[in-house]
Nucleic acid binder design. Sequence first.
DNA 1: TACAATTTAATTGTCGACAATTTTAGCGGT
DNA 2: ACCGCTAAAATTGTCGACAATTAAATTGTA
Lengths: 223, 223
Amino acid sequence: MAVSVEHLKTIPERVFQQLREAIVEGTIPAGTKISEAELAQTYGISRGPLREAISQLAAMGLVERRANVGARVIQMSSDHLLDIFRVREALEGMAARLAAAKMTPEQVQTLMETLDQHGETINEDAGNNYFQESGDLDFHYQVVMGSGSDHLIKLLCNDLYYLVRLYRYQFGMRSKRGPIAIVEHRNIAEAIARGDGEMAELLMRSHIRASRENVERLLTQQN
Amino acid sequence: MAVSVEHLKTIPERVFQQLREAIVEGTIPAGTKISEAELAQTYGISRGPLREAISQLAAMGLVERRANVGARVIQMSSDHLLDIFRVREALEGMAARLAAAKMTPEQVQTLMETLDQHGETINEDAGNNYFQESGDLDFHYQVVMGSGSDHLIKLLCNDLYYLVRLYRYQFGMRSKRGPIAIVEHRNIAEAIARGDGEMAELLMRSHIRASRENVERLLTQQN
DNA sequence: TACAATTTAATTGTCGACAATTTTAGCGGT
DNA sequence: ACCGCTAAAATTGTCGACAATTAAATTGTA
């Protein structure tokens, strides 16, 4: 997932992004203690900027910080995970509604092409969950961007989606909902394309709810 | 609005809260440049901890920060304000739905008593918007807490509600929806009390949407 | 050996000084 | 008087060292 990088002017920003990626990708495993001295040396910087980066990570919920003790990479509980789905259902439902009203024809066109591509990918390679999951976020990302809401974009694209990626790594569950999700995506996109915000929200919420219920099933049968 | 204060152990936390309150209350007016040197001297601290506090303010959207330039208190645009309402509609709708399922009888009891009190206050003193507005947030606060969702609580109570308070100061509009809002609050509370999550969400969203449309009207006729 | 208290070590929190960047002030030319 | 350029001042970014707190190790005792 390429992230626009143009202005990593300041050290905290750059280190924040690097740490965020390392945590999400699992390079720094869940529960790991974030040692300031160690990381400062690793990145060749002072502890000041590093602390600011850690604060940002704490603010978005990727690490938990306790005064005079330090920060640890969060390890997600089932409750925490299901909670995220509920917030996504609310926010992305609204995003879909707004996208139906505000997306430009070009954006809709791009969205459709993305879906076509996902459909092919899944046929060619039914077992590969990587592209599947990555593609899933791609779709949601585009819808949120299409909503034109700065707050929704910030909350979802800058915060929640990283938690989603983290959970996918930590729980590592293969969903098998891929083909169904593709169809649901297409239905949502068509509602957006015809400007039916009400329906777009309904379908998006239903889509995320189904995803949550699926995860809920996997969690209960696995414990 | 009393905030639990038990552990303002570290300087950044304490200063963050103080600055947040000063900004929301208008003590530091909109658009004001946040001078690090000046504030550090004012609070009698070093610039390090102060910068962390400013980062937190930037993360929650109360100030805007630019590298090598500094931070300024945000001045809310109409678009920004309406955007907040849409996010609130989505999040608080979900909060009400969850609250209907998870609120304890004691919490419901407290909620009802709060509403009784608001009703009296408004009758005694129909023109006083202070208690009205303050009471409004009180109600929403209790519902969100009742949802039991850590994420919703964080997003709404720790972030968005401060922006709401800020906008109420910056725009300073007297809504006159007070009596109507009270009735809407009561309907929402009753839906929650009887465990009807679907209806609670519907009513909450309708309530916030009405509030937004009212603000929208005031904005267009005033410009 | 197990446990508790005390001392030691390691880690986080805070500070003051220096470096880099931006903004302001001053100057000369047209 | 106005505009562009240069230099100075002010502000933010970064660093290294010290203080305060917490976690670990050691010792003493039952």
